[in-house]
Each structure stands twice: as C-alpha cells, then as structure tokens.
Amino acid sequence: MGKVVVVTSGKGGVGKTTSTAALGAALAQCGQNVVVVDFDVGLRNLDLVMGAERRVVYDFINVTQGVAKLSQALIRDKRLDRLALLPASQTRDKDALTEDGVQSVITSLRKMFDWIICDSPAGIERGATLAMRYADEAVVVTNPEVSSVRDSDRIIGILDAKTVRAERGERVAKHLLITRFDQARASRGEMLTIEDVLEILSTPLLGIVPESEEVLRASNLGAPVTFNNPNSGPARAYFDAARRLMGEEIEMTIPTDKLSLFGKLFGRRAA
C-alpha cells in the first residue's frame, strides 16, 4: 500500500508546487513508483512545473465524476515512467471536489503507487483540508520569514485536528522543509536561522533547500530541479529529503550550488 504525503504550508508562494515536483521526481529517481497529485482546483500549476501542460486531457474531477477512468487521467512522465501526474481541474467550481471523490481516488492510487504526493493549494479552506484529509505524512514547506512561519504553525495545528488520522487518534507524521534559505544572510542576523525556525515550530526537519537560481531555471524549462540539474544545491537538498522520507538517515547539510573558478573570483554563481 502506498503512502500518502501532503505538501502544505498555509501561505502561498513558499514552494509547495516546486517541492512536490522535486520530491516526487527524486523519489522516482530513487526507484520508487510515484504519483504527484494537484489539489489546486481552478489554479492548477503542477502540470506546468512538471512540463506536462500540453498533455492534460482528463483531470482529477473528471475521474471523481466518472467522466474518465483514473488510468486515462494519469500522465506518465516522459523522462521517467515510474513518475506520474494527476492534474487538477481548471473549473471555477471549488466545490467540484468532494470528500468521497477524493477518498475513492486516493484508495485506488494507494494500490498503484508507492508514494502519493499531494500538492495542496494555499490557505486553510476546503481545497487545503481535502489535500491533507487522507495523508499519512505531511511535508510543511516554510520560508525563514515571519508570515510563512506563522502560517506553518497554523497548518500544523490543522493537521493535528482535521485529518482522518487525527480523528482516529493517530498521528500524521509531520516534517519541516525549509526552502529559500540563505546561510550568509542568516549568519549576518538578517534571516531567521534554521535553529530559530525549529525552536518555534518544534517539528522535525526534513531538509533545507537553499535559495538558488536553479529553481526558477527548472520551472522555466518545465522540469523538476532534480531532473534539470541533479548536482545543483536545491536538487541535492531534495534528493536528501526524499531519502529521509524513505527512512534513510542522512546527515543534515545545506547543499549549495558549486561556484566555477570564474564565479569564485568574481563572486557570481556558475551558469
């Protein structure tokens, strides 16, 4: 039976979709069968970040409404067929996704894949609570910045209250993924440190993704960063995070982009 992981944050723009794509791809690159599921009804973007926007025919809601079979809506990644995408619908009807519909699709996906990674919409409304509803584990994406940390705290409380596991008195395993981290600024006292964030949120750390040009470059090209440049800082951070999700114990580091000789001399990052 596959494991359901929700990637959530409360706040928008912190890197949920980027992290869903990168973690999903990294798990698949480690040999796992993975599906990434977009829960952002009306504002789907996971298809674009994965580079599959022109291949969407049917979506999540078509499946729940019986218009299409699950196998018709799933898009296999062209680079790695162990990786699949279930796109969200672009309908403006936010209530089109129902709890029963989500449950039946998740139940089927659990039988087909090792990992079901759910990309949550921002906010704490219906879409976000549906994305986390059946989760076994949660990746809380946080930027080292006050509004993001506050919203993460809120979403952690909701994970402990509104998931099926919480209602059964069980626990959703929560992991913190700190993204857009800049060690130099943190050292200068200009940015919350990793220790600050961990102390405030008291949630175990899954990984630290450094601020990097590689993330935008990868999304421009429609490839998860672990495909596009596997040796870049963020890609290595996502690989480590994926392996920690798989239960491996890996020393926590902040991988950075390597500087070329030119970059070292002139203080710019390698192209």
Binding site: V146, G189, M191
Partner: peptide, 19 residues
C-alpha cells in the same frame, strides 16, 4: 544589529498567544 532576532521574538510572542 540583525533584524532576525526581532523576527524570532515577535513570532514567539504571537504564536504563544495564537496557540
């Protein structure tokens, strides 16, 4: 002085209240 310590203190006070 860095602004991060201020951010940390503000968050700790706010979240204690919100929690």
């Amino acid at each position: 002085r860095g602004s991060a310590p201020v951010a940390r203190d503000r968050l700790q006070i706010l979240l204690a209240y919100e929690r």
